[in-house]
């Protein structure tokens, strides 16, 4: 567990760690457990749903899914040694390159895309006009659309800080691509709506709180009281809901 958390911290947004609870604990139980263990507050995802079956007979078990979605390694993490870290580093590097088997003339388009120059990447595909180029074009658009959908979700769910960061990046990257630019602009406009100002203030206060308590003793009475105060002060916001959930989780009895 701690080694996966360290890897998430080390690679940031370039790697996604998903923790899957496999012993039947409820969401409340494992989330409270993770807070108590000082594992929360980072980018890792937590779920009780196995996105694919385990292959061994015991826990823990680790699987590495490559940039193309293929399972590259799976088993007891102790058996991997340094191979796991090497494979992650290789995949992070691969994420910045064209996929394996990409025809040479298309490599430039992928390079442009990874540099965030979406208009240039699409133009190169259009110039080439081949079936491969059209497939790559569709993939570029799909990837940007997925990020726009994520931005929309972040706005809707009261994560204005993360949404602003993503929308800012997307605005730069989609410059010169009207059909994408307009969708990004729509999210930027929603973020700027006056009624979101309170949500932004609340989200910042919640983020500051999490940063302050996650690696210390999250459920100490003083922290729980502070969370209660946040929930009260920003009542009606998504951040207040998160603060209320934190307070509720502090009351959950967990195994350790």
């Amino acid at each position: 567990m701690p080694s996966a958390l360290k890897l998430q911290e080390q690679y940031g947004d370039a790697l996604q760690v998903i923790f899957v609870e496999c012993q039947g604990a409820s969401r409340d139980q494992y989330e409270a457990f993770a807070w108590k263990m000082k594992w929360m507050g980072g980018r890792a995802l937590w779920t009780e749903e196995r996105p694919f079956p385990t292959v061994g007979n015991g826990l823990p078990e680790t699987a590495l899914v490559g940039v193309d979605g293929t399972i590259l390694m799976q088993g007891h993490p102790g058996g991997f040694g340094k191979k796991l870290e090497e494979a992650i580093a290789a995949e992070v590097k691969k994420a910045k390159d064209a996929p394996e088997g990409t025809p040479t003339p298309l490599r430039g388009a992928w390079k442009s895309f990874h540099k965030g120059e979406v208009a240039a990447a699409l133009l190169e595909c259009d110039k080439l006009g081949s079936d491969d180029a059209q497939l790559a074009r569709a993939e570029f658009v799909a990837r940007v659309e997925r990020r726009i959908a994520r931005a929309k979700w972040l706005v809707d769910q009261g994560f204005p800080v993360e949404a602003s960061e993503l929308v800012g990046k997307l605005a730069k990257e989609t410059k010169g691509v009207p059909e994408l630019e307009s969708k990004v602009a729509a999210e930027a406009a929603r973020l700027a709506e006056p009624e979101r100002a309170r949500e932004k203030e609340a989200a910042k206060a919640w983020d500051t709180f999490v940063e302050a308590v996650a690696k210390k003793k999250p459920f100490e009475p003083a922290n729980v009281k502070r969370a209660e105060g946040l929930a009260e002060k920003f009542a009606g916001t998504k951040a207040a809901e998160r603060a209320q959930r934190f307070v509720a989780l502090s009351q959950v009895r967990v195994g350790s």
Binding site: Q16, R27, A95
Partner: peptide, 25 residues
């Protein structure tokens, strides 16, 4: 997932490596 930040499927994560850690409480 908790902390999903808009991720709804494995497909949403295509293009970056994903480390899945199966664990128990």
């Amino acid at each position: 997932p908790v902390n999903a930040m808009g991720v709804k499927s494995l497909e949403d994560l295509r293009g970056k490596p994903v480390l899945v850690d199966f664990w128990g409480t």
